[in-house]
Computed example of a mutant assay.
Amino acid sequence: MEIQALKIKAAQIRMDLLTIIHRAKTGHTGGSLSNTDILTALYYEVMNIDPSNPKRADRDRFIASKGHSVESLWCVLADLGFFPKEELETYSQFGTRLIGHPNNKVPGIEMNTGALGHGLPISVGMALAAKRDGQSYRVFCLMGDGEQAEGSNWEAAMAGAHYKLDNLVGIIDRNGLQISGSTEDVMGLEPLEDKWAAFGWNVISVDGNDMEQLVRTFRSAPEVEGKPTLIVANTVKGKGVSFAENVPAWHHHVPNDEQLELALAELSATIDQLSQEGQVHRS
């Protein structure tokens, strides 16, 4: 897909995730909005996946360690055809497969995740298995920045470097906010890049809401042979909805009817603008 088309797709995914959160009256809105560009770049342009054969042996693996921000992932998987899009209407309803964290009863989900700090250790194991089995697939693990307070991440970081897992790509959704406020007030992380580099990872910092940067960076990993890659994706929590951006309360705030209408109108206007820009570019 062209970069402009990916941006439009990300806006459409944001509209979908807001709609299912509003319908279910539950969800993690801010983090799902901030990680949508990351997921769009990975799933529509970078990863080797096949919705018609989700268990194909050579598929790239994606682990959503920050599993509470699952709504964007559900919407991406449905849009790609891993399961019927109509099933999104059951999100967080009684008996649904589409619960509030990734659930491996759903095609396209590798592992149940959401207990923070568990995703990267799982990803290290998957990447190590690929190396030992002579497989070429890559493993992508999306973490939250608040999640960096979990010690298991740093044990996994040490192991990833020790085993020279250059088929492993860790991503931190660095939006600077967590449930109780700023990450730097709750548990300071800086200098975050230096810490990961000291653990033996090749560290890249990008604008996590810039589609072109994301696609280019994900495609190029690994840049350094024998080292796992850590991408610090600097994002805006609540991205795409002006009144939700950088507002801590939107971590798990559910939009009311009026807020949903306003948000969908903003995103629809964004799509219109991107479409016009694309037409101008092509002409």
Results as ranks from 00 to 15, higher is better:
A249L: 09
S69D: 12
P191Y: 06
T183G: 04
H118A: 12
V139N: 04
I109P: 00
S92H: 13
G117W: 04
A157V: 03
R174S: 07
A263T: 07
I204Q: 11
D145R: 03
A198T: 10
E86A: 15
H28G: 06
W196M: 07
F218W: 07
E71N: 15
S72Y: 04
I20N: 01
S34N: 08
N246Y: 05
M211R: 09
N175C: 10
T229A: 14
S52F: 13
T229S: 14
L17I: 12
R282Y: 11
N246S: 13
S182M: 12
A5R: 03
R132I: 12
L73P: 00
N167H: 13
Q148A: 12
N112G: 10
G238L: 11
K105R: 15
P54Q: 08
L98R: 03
K237Y: 11
A11I: 03
K195F: 08
Q93G: 15
L73M: 10
V106Y: 00
L189S: 10
M187G: 06
N104P: 15
G31S: 11
F94K: 12
P222H: 11
I20R: 00
H28L: 06
V203G: 01
L177N: 01
K237A: 10
N104D: 15
H22R: 09
N153P: 05
Y163K: 12
A11C: 13
M187V: 08
G119I: 03
G95L: 13
F83S: 04
V70F: 03
M211G: 06
G114C: 11
I20Y: 00
K105E: 14
E245D: 10
V169K: 01
H253M: 07
R282P: 05
D37W: 02
P121R: 04
Q273W: 09
S34Y: 04
G31P: 02
A130N: 10
M187R: 06
P228D: 08
H252I: 05
D60M: 13
L189N: 11
A157P: 01
E71Y: 08
S268I: 07
D185R: 08
D16F: 06
V206D: 00
L33H: 05
R216D: 12
L165P: 01
T19R: 11
V254R: 03
Y163F: 15
N35W: 04
I271W: 05
L98Q: 02
D173Q: 07
A24S: 15
F199I: 09
L128C: 08
S69W: 01
F83D: 05
